[in-house]
Amino acid sequence: MSTEKRIQERDVVIQTIAKLMIPFIQLYGLYVMVGTEGAGGGFQGGTVLAASFILLVVAFGVDKGRMKMPEGWNAVFKSLGLYLYAGVGGLLCIIFSLGKAEYLNYCAIPLAKIIGGPATRGFWVGNIVEVGIGVTVMAAFVSIFYDLVRKEEKKEAKE
């Protein structure tokens, strides 16, 4: 196989640096998504997480990248993020606001009466929504990159 030969020729410096960097990049992406108090940061954190997986594929090759992040997970993660966003934003608030249907009004859940509206929005519900956005963005970027790389592989196999 030509792919195995290409994997063996990869540089050990790049692989070691990638092994060292990837956990910190992912931790930073998670920090951007949920670490700060205010709202926002889901798209940025998801992009940083996707960049870590793209670095994994670039450093170790497509085969090991598919072992760590299989392509079937992309659809699962995309759907999971959408369900988190729409579920927290819509379903919970529709249920807890007793039929008034306050979509994306995070202060409508009963937790807001205990710890206050801004705290609910910022700490609890906003973080779950941001994780949903970030997971969707990460899976979308990784699936675009896998699509670009896979077509290249097919072309090489024909030749």
Binding site: V32, Q44, T47, A51, I144, F145, L148
Partner: peptide, 25 residues
């Protein structure tokens, strides 16, 4: 800073990888 590291992650990181993967075809 927020816009800055988004630009660094998307523009300098992800877009370059996408474009090189597209250029290889």
């Amino acid at each position: 800073v927020d816009v800055g590291f988004t630009e660094a992650a998307i523009g300098a990181g992800v877009t370059t990888a996408f474009m090189i993967a597209a250029l290889s075809r």
